[in-house]
Nucleic acid binder design. Structure first.
Lengths: 220, 220
DNA sequence: CCAAAAGTGTTCGTACTACACCCATGC
DNA sequence: GCATGGGTGTAGTACGAACACTTTTGG
């Protein structure tokens, strides 16, 4: 290694998903400075001294969106030489999941700079963020099927209907109610609390919670 | 972004797997310079100007091991602030698979600087390379079960016994011959060539090849 | 004829699919 | 009493796991 190594700028970009109105949504921010000023983009920013990649992603998420607690997972690293007009900037993509009921926190950031978009109606995005988002959606869909990651969108106690709506939103197809419930039971994933919730002119639904403490359980 | 962003050094490190004597092996190189001089480490090196991450991994693989054609896939990015004593060095881990019969190429590199180690008898490694290797093994094992990635270890034509041996080596457990073959047939993964190969005092085996052109097919 | 690997089917349990009706509640 | 979502079971099919013997060849 006698050549002088190339120094690069390193960022993390976060694809933050949630469910609203039973639809999968993604948080985007409007860029306030060049390049791509005024464009929609993923939240993210430069890695700082003494900070790990995951710490950086968590910090950026908090700073740019006000989201404090979220499931966070490294996705993929994008480093094509010309992906950023400023020069050599490599980004480590993350994806993050928050519960719908934490979204009040979103108001803590400057209001018109951030917005939730339905995952299937996205605007044009800055840099290669459309590609990062595509990879994130792919990974999320796959993981919902073979792990319990989908429950990250739900509060600690939830009804089975809510759970099914979340899975349907992520997979973008409808599921059979009896099969969905049977599968949860077969996997021993949820346990009833005995308590019920009444939210309309119909029979009250039982509240459930995850049976295990591990946040995300891989099936099989 | 008013602060001045941190510049980092970026490397790729490659976990190169193969199968020899029906065992899963990993290629390591002995470091010729500090830090960790004399230690075993993964092949890899600094990303250069104008080079994408995948190109860097492929180049390092060629330069350090003489391996030209290999299946290559990005694994995970490791960026803890203190993972490298030289300063802030972030590495993008890759894993690569080569066929056993390409290993003659390995002699093209300086002989005692590189060696194959059984995946379950590894020496101490430099940096956080033990962790990178752990992640790579995990990913490889998982992927062998739900994709046709294992055939990357085999030549274009192979016997079913060879295919089974490869899968057994990766999974570190023995498989049932009839089930293995039935599963290949059910998936329509391989097709017989009609030709046979004779390699000992026993009935000759038919040669097979992959039924599809796609290098790696995901099941289900 | 012996050693060595090639080749081949069935049974069982488990998991996914499709599918329809009664129940509890508020208005 | 009616509208709304809550809750439940069964039959068919597909897939993975366990399991043993005959065939072909070289020596």
């Amino acid at each position: 290694m006698s050549f002088s190594p190339l120094e690069v700028l390193l960022t993390t970009d976060i694809v933050l998903f949630t469910i609203q109105q039973e639809r999968l949504k993604v948080l985007l921010i409007r860029r306030g400075s060049d390049p791509y000023k005024g464009c929609w983009a993923l939240p993210g920013g430069f890695v700082q001294e003494g900070e790990s990649l995951g710490e950086c992603a968590r910090r950026e998420l908090l700073e740019e969106t006000g989201v404090d607690e979220a499931y966070l997972e490294q996705l993929y690293t994008f480093g094509d030489p010309d992906r950023d007009p400023r020069g050599r900037v490599v980004t480590v993509g993350y994806f993050a999941l928050v519960r719908s009921d934490e979204l009040i926190l979103e108001a803590s950031t400057d209001a018109d700079a951030a917005a939730w978009f339905p995952a299937d109606e996205l605007p044009d995005l800055a840099f290669d963020h459309a590609e990062i988002l595509r990879v994130a959606r792919e990974r999320l869909s796959a993981k919902v099927e073979y792990s319990s990651i989908g429950f990250q969108f739900l509060p600690v106690e939830f009804t089975l209907r809510q759970a099914q709506a979340v899975h349907e939103a992520v997979l973008a197809r409808s599921l059979d109610k009896r099969n969905f419930r049977a599968s949860l039971k077969a996997r021993g994933l949820v346990k009833g609390t005995g308590r019920k919730i009444q939210d309309g002119p119909h029979r009250p639904a039982e509240l459930f919670r995850l049976a295990t403490d591990e946040p995300v359980k891989i099936f099989k």
